[in-house]
Design a protein around this nucleic acid. Structure first.
Lengths: 186, 186
DNA sequence: CGGGTAATAAGACACTCTGTATCGCAAAAA
DNA sequence: TTTTTGCGATACAGAGTGTCTTATTACCCG
């Protein structure tokens, strides 16, 4: 995409990387994860195919990088929601925000199509830790059940709330959050 | 696999189809969904590559068929569990069985790697309907919350319980079922 | 302003996989 | 036996891959 170098070389390379991930995401949305080729990505990014190989060695790496970027940006959004909410409403606010994100970005999972992704993406582990810490905090306030480790409750939350991407209305998403929350209470 | 024809021609073709799905599943477990080729599947099945094309037009169809078979077999198992359990314990028994299946077969989802799969597999819709009917029955007994449609509760259950495939002990699976169940009650 | 540096586009190349067609072979059926 | 029918093997063109080479262009420094 960028024809002229921005400021430094590294900034230019970052811009190319970002443009590549954008192009790849669009192609995946159009043809599915399996129907995307390096040639298509290079053309859509506006760079040569050989140049693309100097940035990413294969499609799997590109999709993994895109997935990581997506999860990381969601994580930052959730951190903002957490810091903005009162302590007593923090958990509900964050879980609602996560469900809404899943609802609006049904493509963010990619789940099975990545084989090399260490079987659990780095960013997803951060996400899990983030929710777990939130649950520990809520447990200290005495609102949560204590017969299940916080880590397992976090896993439960993340899976239950991804159901949001199959729902059709925001009202349904809110109901899903309510149901999930009531599973956490004693 | 079978070199001589079994009974009828159709039985022979069924045997070849089944052997193909078995071989494909094994290759997927080994190389991931993206790393499997028609050539490999043909060789692993023990048939010629051209012959494989007379059974399945492409890899996507093979993986979809395998996924459907897997879900269907799980569905039959769940139906047996349902019919064996007392009415009062049916829901818990079936959800536990589903969680244990997810726990033992982490590969059954395939989630993102299928593009053509009507975006929701046929068998998975049956599974959703199966759970939904079970929830309607339990609601009639008065144990369930009534502020959320049964279909949404079924979606919630299926997603929450797939978390079982990331857990490490059966005890954790039982805790997950307990948490999920308490989300269903009022 | 001109030379050196670095990233690139374009093309070539060998390789693999794909999807299809053809040709005999062997086993079941008439 | 003769006729079907499924099959393995092979060939073929098209597409994608991963690597390499060459010429071009933009930037930086003296």
């Amino acid at each position: 995409m960028p024809k002229l170098w921005n400021e430094t070389i590294e900034a230019h390379r970052d811009a190319v990387r970002a443009a590549t991930l954008d192009a790849a995401a669009e192609l995946v949305a159009e043809h599915g994860p399996a129907g995307v080729t390096m040639s298509q990505i290079a053309k859509a990014t506006g760079i040569g195919r050989a140049t693309l190989y100097k940035y990413f060695p294969d499609i799997d790496t590109i999709l993994t990088a895109w997935h990581e970027r997506q999860v990381r940006s969601h994580l930052e959004e959730l951190a903002r929601v957490r810091d903005r909410a009162e302590s007593s409403e923090r958990l509900e606010a964050v879980l609602t925000a996560y469900a809404v994100l899943s609802f609006q970005h049904p493509r963010s999972d990619l789940a099975g199509s990545l084989h090399r992704a260490d079987h659990v993406s780095q960013a997803r582990q951060h996400l899990h830790g983030f929710i777990r810490d939130l649950l520990v905090e809520a447990a200290a306030a005495g609102d949560l059940r204590t017969d299940v480790p916080a880590a397992e409750l976090a896993t439960y939350c993340l899976h239950a709330l991804t159901a949001a991407n199959t729902l059709r209305s925001k009202a349904a998403v809110r109901r899903l959050v309510a149901v999930t929350l009531s599973g956490l209470r004693r």
